[in-house]
Nucleic acid binder design. Sequence first.
DNA 1: GGCTAACGCAACCAGATACTTGCATTTGTT
DNA 2: AACAAATGCAAGTATCTGGTTGCGTTAGCC
Lengths: 113, 113
Amino acid sequence: MSRPSAATGHLAHPAPLFAALGDETRLALVNRLSAEGPQSITRLTAGSAITRQAVTKHLQTLAEAGLVHDSRRGRERIWTLDAHQLDEARLYLDQIAQHWDEALDRLRRFVEE
Amino acid sequence: MSRPSAATGHLAHPAPLFAALGDETRLALVNRLSAEGPQSITRLTAGSAITRQAVTKHLQTLAEAGLVHDSRRGRERIWTLDAHQLDEARLYLDQIAQHWDEALDRLRRFVEE
DNA sequence: GGCTAACGCAACCAGATACTTGCATTTGTT
DNA sequence: AACAAATGCAAGTATCTGGTTGCGTTAGCC
């Protein structure tokens, strides 16, 4: 059971979470962390076109949204993806989609009568 | 088959989509549209604390993200949720989560050797 | 036609956000 | 100790964003 598929763990504040994902640079960071695994700021900055400081700020934004967490290793700071909030976001979208399906059913029944 | 569950329809520009969802007011609009079904601007504004103009702008933002679309009915403009982009967003999150799982497996194997 | 409801357009504004630059600090290496 | 690598802190800036107000326009209704 590496990943929950159901359970109604409703999200406290979903908007900030989506807002954190709603930036090109941050989304790229999340992708790199998910594909290449945990790594340091400088390594994350290497491929990017922006400054290390900018990357740092984005990582902090992601951390506030609970999407990543950091741990020190010597003089470098390693950032790791947290899949949990990602799951929360998916569940939230699931709920909206489900409500919409129900609303559509009601509409169809209303029209067909 | 009211809703696709697989298929790798990768999103052209995922960030703007998440950005559209990353606002408290817009997320509330999406929720109302999904729960109460299609409705006009004034009806959507009724419950809200903000101006009709603000609601209009948010709806346009959602429309640019492909999350809603509008149609005229007499003198009012009816806004309807588009579930498709919602699904795209979910699939995108699925992919990230999957990559992360694979990266974790690689890490575990690396440590255990 | 005249009134009102629902909406569109445009200007304006304060605060948030994405960056940068410059310098200080910690930590590994020789 | 001395140097360099990795990061932290803070100030500053241009642009974006969420919101308002004012007024014009379209469409139903008496």
